[in-house]
Amino acid sequence: MGRAIPPLALVQPVLEGRLSAVARMITHAESGEEACHEALAEIYRHTGKAHVVGITGVPGSGKSALVTRLCKALRAGERSVAVIAVDPSSPFSGGSILGDRIRMNELVTDPGVFIRSMATRGALGGLSRAALSGVDILDAAGYDVVLIETVGVGQDEIDVVQAVHTTLVVSAPGLGDDIQAIKAGVLEIADIHVVGKCDRSDAHRTVTDLKNMLAMGHRDGQGYGWQVPLIPTSSFSGEGIPELLTAIDGHLEALTTSGELEQRRRRIAQTRLLKSAENILRDQFQRHHDRQISELTDRMMAGRTHPHAAAQILLNQFRSERKP
């Protein structure tokens, strides 16, 4: 046993779209191991073709069912689609139960659909740390559309907007005050609003509430001529799905013609640069400065040093050790 395939050897099969290679490469990316960076860098050079769409919303709003419907609609138009479905890790054991697939089973045997579940592994903001590397891999493998389904979010988990071209925010009737609860955060990031479960009789109230909120004008006409639409859907009956797909395509069109797409690509790149730098630094601190971290923590516990001052000391030590 133990015939490990080096990540670099997977690059070519990934670019050819071989399922098992794509899947294994995502595993490598999730591990964050040193050996995968060269392969991921090679893959990154082949990205930039896919339309990356984020789907977010409160838990139970129907994101997974909506994703299933969207995949089918995309397939009907002969477009290939990949899904990254993020579910939470347990804060105690680190384990997870990834259940988004339960609602997506009917898609699996279609070779034009690829679904991958990811656990958050402590990452905040609704995504997992490897989600964006996953998007790169699926983009390079040739999928036309990549959907990221975030964990069910509450008020402030808006990382997805820094990671995708088009953001869908899903609301649903019967969740009461959730709309109120999220209106200052998550609702503002929508490029397209979706109200799910519109086969329910109380759905019109949710639609009205949202329309009123949108009329107050958050990001309407966001500077590139895009009016945020609100689309009632039912994943049960399929109502509204064609309209939603038209809106998604329309948004990409608006992004492209206005030049906003380049802006967003740039913003995504910059966010990833800073996140990577953060990860490298944290990793180096933990590896080489364990003792200093422990000493400074002692000083903070004794009430002598403020966290900000302690961080300055740590950074100064780090810098002085690295001077030539």
Partner: peptide, 25 residues
């Protein structure tokens, strides 16, 4: 026990399960 567990739900076919296992690696 700290593992990532993907549950497929009931009434799956061998084809669905095998393909899903490969995609999920």
């Amino acid at each position: 026990a700290g593992m990532d567990v993907i549950y497929t739900g009931l009434h799956r076919t061998p084809e669905e399960v095998a393909l899903a296992a490969v995609q999920e690696d």
